[in-house]
Design a protein around this nucleic acid. Sequence first.
DNA 1: TGATATGTTATCTT
DNA 2: CAAGATAACATATC
Length: 272
Amino acid sequence: MPELPEVETIVEQLKNKILGKVVIKVEVLDSIVDNEISKKTPFKLKNIYRRAKALIFELDNGLYLFVHLRMTGHFHYLTNEQVAFDKEKLEKCHRFLAAKFNFEDGGLLTYNDIRRFGFVKLFNKEQLGVELTKLGPEPLSSEFSLRCFTAKLKDKKNSVIKTLLMDQHFLAGLGNIYAQEVLYLAGINPLRKAGSLTTLEIKNLHRHIIEVLKLAIKHKGSTVDNYAHVDGSGDFQNYLVVYGREKCTKGHNLQKVEIGGRGTSYCLECQK
DNA sequence: TGATATGTTATCTT
DNA sequence: CAAGATAACATATC
């Protein structure tokens, strides 16, 4: 399940491979990809960046591809040589195929999505703006200040803290995995109400959100279930403290509950 | 076979 | 109105 670090990793890898390249043909094979895209070729990939868990491709014709991988969206990239000779990789690209982007140099980018929850939309600048303003602050940018975080928590003081952390309108980029990690590291019970957090707890939480995300990006994200970035897999799952674990780092048994319809593990001893 | 996992949003309930 | 619960989407994997 790609969350912020995984999407960031994918964006960086795609940048290395296809930034500035020209797409000469787009084949849309599934309605989760906007068919209008196929009518806009040729176009050049002017920029690629991330906002929350979305990937944004800026084209040289004033339009944008707005991509959300949701749970099982994948990109595969093949050079023109691989297209010609690497049958195995080519085969991989054809499973759950939703769209093919053919480059001028013979390279190929595919979008694949097993469960088809993800999507690729075509936006103009205004539509993109509307979409982006819905999202909360980026945790790794200066807009995520301690002061702003504190104020927002106060504003939502009756909400369960874990639910809030996963709410993309409240804060962009955290999902079920990293929300649990951050709460464990900050020693906060995920069921607490936002308004019950002390100044010190808020400070710790704020710091851990930034630190964990940065560390996970260094490890190229966590590989759980279906997540795979373009060049293979990240290894942060080996450093996760609560997600998918039985015991916490201190050897206590973890509690498993459901919060906001999602499985949640936490430690009764370490998280108060 | 059936439970489970997941992100997001819409809709219903409290 | 706010917050929580639930369903919906799809399907591989255990």
